[in-house]
């Protein structure tokens, strides 16, 4: 009875959502096609003028959608590029987007872990020490005002001169971007217990460590999860930026870069879509963990 009702609600919700979602999607695709035709038309006109032929409009439109190196590839070209990259290769191949995505994902997860750890540790320090509160936060803010594009090549070069290459330099750039939301969220979260809850703890003569593990940390979890969603997306951006400089040959960032070197716009867009799918998947996983944990803790509100 109850599950039947639940099913009915789900269907109604998907029905209610499906129409607007599909409408928006169709509008985007339509605008994309129009833009592709418009942006790629010039090259076709130039070609036609050189060959001294005149193109009819249907011909022009048809040609703009099948160019090898379009200014803006049409959606179906990207779809084909994506499909070939994901499913058309052995996943160990250098041409496989799955392989490149894995290279990026591993550095993203490592950077996310480092960044989250650093953010939480700094937040704990800030909440418990007045001098850290006043000294760390300005530096943390300053670190985020430096453009990551400027920092990334320096990190890569400095670390590689120290003999550190591969995953770690990218992970450090990812951590650089992802520690900040965790830090800000956790400082706020660890301070959520109110005066009464802290007095309660004092009335039991609880130590700082006991207050932390039993009250502050559980209370902060809603803030932590909100921050983690931002942090994991930031970690992915950081990793991709870290893959751009210094001739990286693997990862979605490298794919973007080589695509732009050789005018392979389809390759660029395919890599972009994989990055977007990866980000969506990662945020969804964190969101699922969030719902599960907070529901169980009675904090979901």
């Amino acid at each position: 009875m109850r599950s039947a009702k639940g099913c009915a609600t789900v269907t109604a919700m998907t029905k209610g959502r499906l129409v607007p979602v599909l409408t928006v999607l169709m509008v985007i695709v339509a605008v994309w096609y129009l833009a592709a035709i418009r942006m790629n038309a010039q090259w076709e006109r130039d070609q036609a003028a050189r060959a001294e032929v005149t193109l009819t409009l249907p011909d022009l439109v048809a040609r703009t959608l099948v160019q090898e190196r379009p200014v803006l590839p049409a959606p179906h070209q990207v779809a084909v590029g994506l499909w070939e990259g994901l499913a058309g290769q052995a996943i160990t191949s250098r041409r496989s987007l799955v392989w490149h995505a894995w290279v990026t994902l591993s550095a993203t997860l490592a950077g996310f872990a480092i960044g989250t750890g650093a953010g939480i540790l700094l937040a704990v320090g800030i909440v418990h020490s007045r001098s850290m509160d006043q000294s760390v936060m300005p530096w943390a803010v300053a670190s985020q005002t430096v453009p990551i594009l400027a920092i990334a090549p320096m990190v890569i070069v400095v670390l590689s001169s120290m003999g550190i290459t591969g995953l770690l330099p990218k992970a450090i750039i990812a951590a650089w971007l992802s520690f900040f939301p965790v830090l800000v969220g956790m400082v706020k979260g660890l301070r959520t217990p109110d005066a009464m809850q802290l007095d309660q703890m004092r009335s039991w003569s609880a130590s700082d460590a006991q207050v932390f593990w039993r009250l502050r940390l559980p209370s902060s979890l809603p803030y932590l999860f909100a921050s983690l969603k931002v942090a994991i997306a930031a970690a992915l951006v950081g990793t991709i930026v870290g893959e751009l400089p210094a001739g990286a040959t693997a990862g979605l960032g490298a794919r973007l870069l080589s695509g732009s070197y050789y005018g392979q716009t389809v390759q660029i867009w395919s890599a972009l879509f994989v990055a977007a799918l990866l980000a969506a998947g990662l945020v969804a996983i964190v969101g699922w963990l969030e719902r599960r944990t907070l529901d169980r803790m009675g904090l979901a509100r």
């Binding site: 009335s203 039991w204 039993r214």
Partner: peptide, 28 residues
């Protein structure tokens, strides 16, 4: 020497009633 009851119950939502009563006992 004392137990203190505040204006609001201040129970932790992630602990059961037993778990909440257990809290000061764990701390002590």
């Amino acid at each position: 020497a004392y137990g203190y009851v505040f204006q609001a119950p201040g129970l932790y939502p992630w602990r059961t009633i037993s778990g909440n009563i257990s809290l000061p006992l764990e701390i002590m």
